[in-house]
Design a protein around this nucleic acid. Structure first.
Lengths: 137, 137
DNA sequence: ATAAGTGCAAAGACTTTGCTTATTA
DNA sequence: TAATAAGCAAAGTCTTTGCACTTAT
């Protein structure tokens, strides 16, 4: 994998972000300092960087669009029910989900994907005051 | 919600299926006995039926397309890494994931989405013989 | 020098919407 | 008979691809 200017810009940018951007979000950011970059290049590089393990492609069930994570370390995510913002979740090693399975249609299970939904700090603060309703997700 | 012939056909069909069909799959099936039905009607009815609680809209991270489940009962899913087939998973009530969270970016967590990946009975049988490789997912 | 990558535009896949006609309650 | 839904086609979103040009090694 060649380290082109575009690829480096994308990797540096996603690493700096604590968010979990979509291709399009990243494109908007990188375009500010590399105006000729194309969205296709961003898509291609995100896939490439993910397949090489530099970043992670997220498969969040709750998200409409595909997102990527500049932190390839093993961890989970929480999606804000109100605004869609995504946070990181770390679990301890003691969790054993498989021992709680009582039926699995005879499938051999070999990995578990976990994702959390809740309220981000901002939204939980705001909703406390307003006692408002949380969006459906 | 009016019970139209189309809506009934869609609901009856998805209830009979043990699979977790996409709108398009359901459309193909229903069209066989109701040839004038349109794909838009299938999409609209699946969303409507899901919002009324008759069926469930699945948000599987691993799936490319949106899927629906004729069984609205609370349960989880397992996706075959090899063929994409989806099975049902039931867990016992003792599982407490929240107590294993060691960091959550200050989000208030209120639900957990779980999904399993593995091999369906057919694929695990076949792969045992061939010692073949499992597809990436 | 050459294989790999870029930009652009077009095509794809999936889903939603607008509008007219049909139908249920 | 009036509000809801269907059918059809068009439009929308997000993502991928083809191709000619460029660039890192």
């Amino acid at each position: 994998m060649r380290m082109t200017a575009q690829r480096k810009a994308i990797l540096d940018t996603i690493r700096k972000l604590k968010t979990h951007p979509t291709a399009d979000e990243l494109y908007s950011i990188v375009k500010q300092f590399m105006p000729r970059i194309s969205l296709a290049t961003v898509y291609r590089n995100l896939e490439m960087l993910a397949s090489e393990g530099y970043i992670k492609r997220l498969n969040l069930g709750g998200a409409e669009q595909r997102r990527y994570d500049g932190n390839p370390e093993h961890h989970y995510h929480v999606i804000c029910l109100n605004c869609g913002q995504i946070g990181d979740v770390y679990l301890d090693e003691d969790l054993d989900i498989n021992s709680h399975i009582i039926h699995s249609d005879e499938f051999l299970i070999n990995k578990v994907h976990l994702e959390f939904w809740g309220l981000c700090p901002d939204c939980s603060k705001n909703l406390q005051k307003k006692e408002g309703k949380v969006h459906e997700h």
